[in-house]
Protein backbone atom coordinates (compact mmCIF):
# COMPACT_ATOMS: atom_id res chain seq x y z
CA UNK A 1 0.00 0.00 0.00
CA UNK A 2 2.89 2.35 0.68
CA UNK A 3 3.45 3.26 -2.95
CA UNK A 4 -0.28 3.86 -3.35
CA UNK A 5 -0.26 6.85 -1.04
CA UNK A 6 -1.79 9.79 -2.78
CA UNK A 7 -0.05 12.54 -0.75
CA UNK A 8 1.53 15.11 -3.03
CA UNK A 9 0.59 13.19 -6.17
CA UNK A 10 -1.46 13.88 -9.28
CA UNK A 11 -4.50 11.66 -9.04
CA UNK A 12 -6.52 10.63 -12.10
CA UNK A 13 -10.00 9.25 -11.54
CA UNK A 14 -10.69 6.69 -14.26
CA UNK A 15 -14.03 6.76 -16.01
CA UNK A 16 -15.58 3.54 -17.22
CA UNK A 17 -18.91 2.34 -18.53
CA UNK A 18 -20.24 -1.19 -18.88
CA UNK A 19 -16.84 -2.74 -18.22
CA UNK A 20 -14.96 -0.53 -20.69
CA UNK A 21 -12.50 2.23 -19.87
CA UNK A 22 -13.78 5.45 -21.41
CA UNK A 23 -11.45 7.37 -23.79
CA UNK A 24 -11.54 10.41 -21.45
CA UNK A 25 -9.51 8.35 -18.96
CA UNK A 26 -6.53 8.20 -21.34
CA UNK A 27 -6.97 11.89 -22.08
CA UNK A 28 -6.81 12.54 -18.34
CA UNK A 29 -3.56 10.56 -18.14
CA UNK A 30 -2.16 12.69 -20.96
CA UNK A 31 -3.34 15.84 -19.17
CA UNK A 32 -1.74 14.62 -15.93
CA UNK A 33 1.56 13.98 -17.76
CA UNK A 34 1.44 17.53 -19.13
CA UNK A 35 0.73 18.87 -15.64
CA UNK A 36 3.62 16.78 -14.32
CA UNK A 37 6.04 18.83 -16.49
CA UNK A 38 5.06 21.95 -14.53
CA UNK A 39 4.55 20.29 -11.20
CA UNK A 40 6.71 17.16 -10.83
CA UNK A 41 4.74 14.60 -8.86
CA UNK A 42 3.87 10.93 -9.31
CA UNK A 43 0.65 10.09 -11.16
CA UNK A 44 -1.75 7.62 -9.54
CA UNK A 45 -4.90 6.34 -11.16
CA UNK A 46 -7.91 5.50 -9.02
CA UNK A 47 -10.67 3.32 -10.41
CA UNK A 48 -13.94 2.79 -8.55
CA UNK A 49 -15.99 -0.29 -9.39
CA UNK A 50 -17.93 -3.17 -7.88
CA UNK A 51 -14.93 -5.46 -8.42
CA UNK A 52 -12.29 -3.11 -9.90
CA UNK A 53 -9.63 -5.79 -10.46
CA UNK A 54 -9.96 -6.24 -14.23
CA UNK A 55 -10.21 -2.51 -14.86
CA UNK A 56 -7.27 -1.73 -12.57
CA UNK A 57 -5.02 -4.33 -14.22
CA UNK A 58 -5.96 -3.15 -17.67
CA UNK A 59 -5.20 0.48 -16.73
CA UNK A 60 -1.83 -0.42 -15.18
CA UNK A 61 -0.88 -2.26 -18.36
CA UNK A 62 -2.02 0.36 -20.87
CA UNK A 63 -0.83 3.47 -19.01
CA UNK A 64 2.20 2.20 -17.07
CA UNK A 65 0.90 4.08 -14.01
CA UNK A 66 0.22 2.78 -10.53
CA UNK A 67 -3.45 2.02 -10.12
CA UNK A 68 -5.51 1.81 -6.98
CA UNK A 69 -8.76 -0.11 -7.45
CA UNK A 70 -11.46 0.84 -4.95
CA UNK A 71 -14.28 -1.63 -4.66
CA UNK A 72 -17.65 -1.63 -2.97
CA UNK A 73 -20.96 -3.36 -3.73
CA UNK A 74 -22.59 0.07 -4.10
CA UNK A 75 -20.32 0.75 -7.09
CA UNK A 76 -22.24 -1.62 -9.37
CA UNK A 77 -23.67 1.59 -10.84
CA UNK A 78 -22.40 5.15 -10.73
CA UNK A 79 -23.73 7.19 -7.83
CA UNK A 80 -22.45 10.67 -7.00
CA UNK A 81 -22.75 10.32 -3.23
CA UNK A 82 -20.97 6.96 -3.23
CA UNK A 83 -18.14 8.34 -5.39
CA UNK A 84 -17.76 11.44 -3.22
CA UNK A 85 -17.79 9.50 0.00
CA UNK A 86 -15.23 6.88 -1.12
CA UNK A 87 -12.88 9.40 -2.73
CA UNK A 88 -13.06 11.68 0.28
CA UNK A 89 -12.17 8.81 2.58
CA UNK A 90 -9.16 7.83 0.46
CA UNK A 91 -7.85 11.33 -0.25
CA UNK A 92 -8.51 13.30 2.95
CA UNK A 93 -5.55 11.97 4.93
CA UNK A 94 -3.19 11.93 1.95
CA UNK A 95 -4.02 15.14 0.13
CA UNK A 96 -2.92 15.02 -3.52
CA UNK A 97 -1.79 18.14 -5.36
CA UNK A 98 -4.34 17.59 -8.11
CA UNK A 99 -7.35 15.41 -8.71
CA UNK A 100 -8.06 15.10 -12.46
CA UNK A 101 -11.61 14.14 -13.41
CA UNK A 102 -13.38 14.05 -16.79
CA UNK A 103 -15.67 16.98 -17.55
CA UNK A 104 -18.34 14.43 -18.40
CA UNK A 105 -21.85 14.05 -17.07
CA UNK A 106 -20.52 11.91 -14.23
CA UNK A 107 -17.35 13.86 -13.53
CA UNK A 108 -19.21 17.16 -13.37
CA UNK A 109 -21.72 15.51 -11.05
CA UNK A 110 -19.32 14.66 -8.22
CA UNK A 111 -16.27 16.90 -8.73
CA UNK A 112 -17.57 20.10 -7.05
CA UNK A 113 -18.87 18.29 -3.94
CA UNK A 114 -15.66 16.26 -3.62
CA UNK A 115 -13.63 19.46 -3.90
CA UNK A 116 -15.59 21.10 -1.12
CA UNK A 117 -15.05 18.12 1.19
CA UNK A 118 -11.33 18.25 0.44
CA UNK A 119 -11.32 22.04 0.99
CA UNK A 120 -10.03 22.27 -2.55
CA UNK A 121 -10.70 24.67 -5.38
CA UNK A 122 -12.64 23.08 -8.22
CA UNK A 123 -11.87 24.34 -11.72
CA UNK A 124 -14.18 22.81 -14.31
CA UNK A 125 -13.98 22.40 -18.09
CA UNK A 126 -10.19 22.86 -18.28
CA UNK A 127 -8.89 22.75 -21.86
CA UNK A 128 -5.24 23.85 -21.54
CA UNK A 129 -2.40 24.54 -19.12
CA UNK A 130 0.19 27.30 -18.94
CA UNK A 131 2.61 28.82 -16.47
CA UNK A 132 2.64 32.57 -15.86
CA UNK A 133 5.00 34.07 -13.30
CA UNK A 134 5.48 30.70 -11.62
CA UNK A 135 1.76 30.10 -11.31
CA UNK A 136 0.07 27.21 -13.07
CA UNK A 137 -2.93 28.52 -14.98
CA UNK A 138 -5.85 26.39 -16.07
CA UNK A 139 -7.59 27.66 -19.19
CA UNK A 140 -11.30 27.35 -19.60
CA UNK A 141 -13.84 28.76 -22.02
CA UNK A 142 -16.23 31.47 -20.87
CA UNK A 143 -18.95 33.34 -22.77
CA UNK A 144 -19.59 30.49 -25.21
CA UNK A 145 -15.91 30.18 -26.05
CA UNK A 146 -15.53 33.82 -27.10
CA UNK A 147 -13.12 34.43 -24.23
CA UNK A 148 -10.56 32.22 -22.55
CA UNK A 149 -10.08 32.58 -18.79
CA UNK A 150 -6.82 31.50 -17.10
CA UNK A 151 -7.74 30.33 -13.61
CA UNK A 152 -5.42 29.85 -10.67
CA UNK A 153 -6.00 27.79 -7.56
CA UNK A 154 -5.23 29.03 -4.04
CA UNK A 155 -5.62 25.68 -2.28
CA UNK A 156 -3.25 22.84 -1.36
CA UNK A 157 -5.31 20.36 -3.36
CA UNK A 158 -7.04 21.34 -6.61
CA UNK A 159 -9.82 19.39 -8.29
CA UNK A 160 -9.85 19.78 -12.08
CA UNK A 161 -12.37 18.57 -14.63
CA UNK A 162 -10.88 18.28 -18.09
CA UNK A 163 -12.91 19.02 -21.23
CA UNK A 164 -13.16 15.85 -23.35
CA UNK A 165 -11.26 16.15 -26.62
CA UNK A 166 -8.80 18.78 -25.34
CA UNK A 167 -5.99 16.25 -24.84
CA UNK A 168 -5.60 13.24 -27.06
CA UNK A 169 -4.72 9.95 -25.41
CA UNK A 170 -1.19 9.82 -23.97
CA UNK A 171 1.31 8.86 -26.67
CA UNK A 172 2.06 5.14 -26.93
CA UNK A 173 5.30 4.16 -25.27
CA UNK A 174 6.67 0.84 -24.24
CA UNK A 175 6.24 1.23 -20.52
CA UNK A 176 6.61 -1.34 -17.80
CA UNK A 177 3.19 -1.88 -16.34
CA UNK A 178 2.27 -0.05 -13.17
CA UNK A 179 1.55 -1.58 -9.80
CA UNK A 180 -1.98 -2.54 -8.94
CA UNK A 181 -3.47 -2.34 -5.48
CA UNK A 182 -7.05 -3.18 -4.55
CA UNK A 183 -8.93 -1.91 -1.55
CA UNK A 184 -12.42 -2.75 -0.36
CA UNK A 185 -14.42 0.17 0.92
CA UNK A 186 -17.48 0.36 3.10
CA UNK A 187 -20.08 2.96 2.31
CA UNK A 188 -22.71 4.11 4.77
CA UNK A 189 -26.33 4.37 3.56
CA UNK A 190 -26.94 7.27 1.21
CA UNK A 191 -29.84 9.61 0.56
CA UNK A 192 -29.59 9.01 -3.17
CA UNK A 193 -29.69 5.66 -4.98
CA UNK A 194 -29.02 4.96 -8.64
CA UNK A 195 -31.84 2.80 -9.94
CA UNK A 196 -30.76 2.00 -13.49
CA UNK A 197 -28.72 3.08 -16.48
CA UNK A 198 -30.52 2.53 -19.75
CA UNK A 199 -30.26 3.59 -23.39
CA UNK A 200 -33.13 5.91 -24.04
CA UNK A 201 -32.98 6.38 -27.76
CA UNK A 202 -31.27 4.28 -30.34
CA UNK A 203 -30.67 5.20 -33.91
CA UNK A 204 -29.94 3.69 -37.30
CA UNK A 205 -28.23 6.87 -38.41
CA UNK A 206 -24.74 6.02 -39.62
CA UNK A 207 -22.49 9.07 -39.57
CA UNK A 208 -19.49 7.14 -40.82
CA UNK A 209 -21.08 6.99 -44.28
CA UNK A 210 -21.71 10.74 -44.35
CA UNK A 211 -18.98 12.67 -46.11
CA UNK A 212 -20.61 15.98 -45.28
CA UNK A 213 -22.56 17.12 -42.23
CA UNK A 214 -24.76 20.21 -42.49
CA UNK A 215 -25.42 21.29 -38.94
CA UNK A 216 -27.99 23.72 -37.56
CA UNK A 217 -27.61 25.73 -34.36
CA UNK A 218 -29.70 28.13 -32.31
CA UNK A 219 -28.97 30.81 -34.94
CA UNK A 220 -31.55 29.27 -37.28
CA UNK A 221 -34.12 31.07 -35.12
CA UNK A 222 -37.34 29.39 -36.23
CA UNK A 223 -38.19 25.78 -36.94
CA UNK A 224 -39.23 26.56 -40.52
CA UNK A 225 -35.68 27.72 -41.24
CA UNK A 226 -34.61 24.12 -40.82
CA UNK A 227 -35.99 23.71 -44.35
CA UNK A 228 -33.13 25.92 -45.56
CA UNK A 229 -30.65 23.56 -43.92
CA UNK A 230 -32.38 20.58 -45.54
CA UNK A 231 -32.40 22.35 -48.92
CA UNK A 232 -28.69 22.99 -48.60
CA UNK A 233 -28.00 19.37 -47.65
CA UNK A 234 -30.09 18.16 -50.58
CA UNK A 235 -27.67 19.70 -53.09
CA UNK A 236 -24.54 18.30 -51.41
CA UNK A 237 -23.87 14.62 -52.14
CA UNK A 238 -23.47 12.20 -49.19
CA UNK A 239 -24.62 14.74 -46.64
CA UNK A 240 -26.62 14.41 -43.41
CA UNK A 241 -28.45 17.11 -41.43
CA UNK A 242 -27.50 17.38 -37.75
CA UNK A 243 -27.74 20.01 -35.05
CA UNK A 244 -26.43 21.41 -31.81
CA UNK A 245 -28.19 20.90 -28.50
CA UNK A 246 -30.62 23.88 -28.57
CA UNK A 247 -32.15 22.63 -31.83
CA UNK A 248 -32.62 19.13 -30.42
CA UNK A 249 -34.00 20.49 -27.11
CA UNK A 250 -36.67 22.33 -29.05
CA UNK A 251 -37.64 19.06 -30.72
CA UNK A 252 -36.79 20.37 -34.19
CA UNK A 253 -34.41 17.44 -34.82
CA UNK A 254 -34.30 14.05 -33.11
CA UNK A 255 -31.72 13.28 -30.45
CA UNK A 256 -29.73 10.93 -32.70
CA UNK A 257 -28.77 14.00 -34.76
CA UNK A 258 -27.25 15.90 -31.81
CA UNK A 259 -23.54 16.61 -32.19
CA UNK A 260 -21.50 17.29 -29.06
CA UNK A 261 -20.63 16.04 -25.60
CA UNK A 262 -23.88 14.24 -24.83
CA UNK A 263 -24.57 13.42 -28.48
CA UNK A 264 -22.47 12.09 -31.33
CA UNK A 265 -18.82 12.77 -32.14
CA UNK A 266 -18.29 13.07 -35.88
CA UNK A 267 -15.37 13.55 -38.26
CA UNK A 268 -16.83 14.19 -41.73
CA UNK A 269 -14.69 15.55 -44.58
CA UNK A 270 -16.80 18.72 -44.50
CA UNK A 271 -18.71 20.20 -41.57
CA UNK A 272 -20.98 23.10 -42.45
CA UNK A 273 -21.90 24.88 -39.22
CA UNK A 274 -24.98 27.05 -39.72
CA UNK A 275 -25.87 29.41 -36.87
CA UNK A 276 -23.73 27.48 -34.39
CA UNK A 277 -21.95 29.56 -31.73
CA UNK A 278 -19.21 27.01 -31.03
CA UNK A 279 -19.52 26.37 -27.29
CA UNK A 280 -17.10 23.73 -25.97
CA UNK A 281 -19.86 21.14 -25.54
CA UNK A 282 -20.57 21.22 -29.27
CA UNK A 283 -17.00 21.68 -30.46
CA UNK A 284 -15.77 18.51 -28.77
CA UNK A 285 -18.13 16.55 -31.04
CA UNK A 286 -16.99 18.00 -34.37
CA UNK A 287 -13.57 19.60 -34.14
CA UNK A 288 -11.88 16.62 -35.81
CA UNK A 289 -13.79 17.31 -39.06
CA UNK A 290 -11.65 17.57 -42.20
CA UNK A 291 -12.79 20.98 -43.41
CA UNK A 292 -15.01 23.33 -41.43
CA UNK A 293 -17.13 26.13 -42.89
CA UNK A 294 -19.12 28.31 -40.48
CA UNK A 295 -21.93 30.74 -41.21
CA UNK A 296 -22.85 33.03 -38.29
CA UNK A 297 -24.08 36.59 -37.84
CA UNK A 298 -21.76 37.14 -34.86
CA UNK A 299 -18.20 37.88 -36.05
CA UNK A 300 -16.93 36.96 -32.56
CA UNK A 301 -18.61 33.54 -32.52
CA UNK A 302 -16.23 30.93 -31.12
CA UNK A 303 -16.94 28.59 -34.03
CA UNK A 304 -14.81 30.85 -36.25
CA UNK A 305 -11.71 29.99 -34.20
CA UNK A 306 -11.78 26.44 -35.49
CA UNK A 307 -13.17 27.04 -38.96
CA UNK A 308 -11.28 26.97 -42.25
CA UNK A 309 -13.79 29.29 -43.89
CA UNK A 310 -15.74 31.94 -41.97
CA UNK A 311 -18.83 33.64 -43.37
CA UNK A 312 -20.38 36.47 -41.36
CA UNK A 313 -23.91 36.40 -42.74
CA UNK A 314 -27.42 35.59 -41.61
CA UNK A 315 -28.02 32.04 -42.83
CA UNK A 316 -31.68 32.89 -43.47
CA UNK A 317 -30.66 35.23 -46.28
CA UNK A 318 -27.33 33.66 -47.20
CA UNK A 319 -28.44 30.07 -47.87
CA UNK A 320 -31.07 31.13 -50.47
CA UNK A 321 -28.41 33.25 -52.20
CA UNK A 322 -26.02 30.30 -52.13
CA UNK A 323 -28.62 27.89 -53.54
CA UNK A 324 -29.55 30.35 -56.25
CA UNK A 325 -25.91 30.82 -57.24
CA UNK A 326 -25.48 27.06 -57.38
CA UNK A 327 -28.55 26.46 -59.53
CA UNK A 328 -27.31 29.12 -61.97
CA UNK A 329 -24.14 27.11 -62.40
CA UNK A 330 -25.78 23.77 -62.93
Amino acid sequence: MKNMQTSGSIVVIAEHFEGEIRPITYELVHFAETLQQFSPAPIKILVLDERAETLAKSLARTTGKDVLGLRAPQLAQYNGQVYTSILHEILRDHPPLYVCIGHSSRGSDYAPGLAMRLKAACITGVSALSVQEDMICFSRDVYGGKINADMVSNTETTVLTVQPGSYGPAPDRDLPKGNVCLKSMTVSPQTSTTLSTTPFQTSDLDFSAARVIVSAGRGIGEEENLELIRDLASVIPQSVVCGSRPVIDLGWLTYDRQIGVTGATVTPDLYLACGISGAAQHVSGMKGSGFIVAINTDPMAAIFNLSDICIVEDLKTFIPVLLEALSNKR
Partner: peptide, 24 residues
Protein backbone atom coordinates in the same frame (compact mmCIF):
# COMPACT_ATOMS: atom_id res chain seq x y z
CA UNK B 1 -10.36 29.19 -3.39
CA UNK B 2 -9.69 30.22 -6.98
CA UNK B 3 -9.21 33.34 -9.02
CA UNK B 4 -8.85 34.63 -12.55
CA UNK B 5 -5.24 35.27 -13.46
CA UNK B 6 -6.09 36.89 -16.78
CA UNK B 7 -8.44 36.57 -19.72
CA UNK B 8 -7.38 36.29 -23.35
CA UNK B 9 -8.93 35.84 -26.75
CA UNK B 10 -9.04 32.17 -27.67
CA UNK B 11 -6.33 30.70 -29.82
CA UNK B 12 -7.26 30.15 -33.45
CA UNK B 13 -7.11 26.42 -34.16
CA UNK B 14 -7.44 26.82 -37.94
CA UNK B 15 -6.67 29.51 -40.47
CA UNK B 16 -10.20 30.88 -40.51
CA UNK B 17 -10.38 32.82 -43.77
CA UNK B 18 -13.20 35.37 -43.58
CA UNK B 19 -14.89 35.68 -46.98
CA UNK B 20 -15.32 39.31 -48.05
CA UNK B 21 -17.81 41.15 -50.21
CA UNK B 22 -21.56 41.03 -50.69
CA UNK B 23 -23.63 37.96 -49.82
CA UNK B 24 -23.63 36.82 -53.44
Amino acid sequence: LQGVRRVTLPRKLREGVFLEGSAS
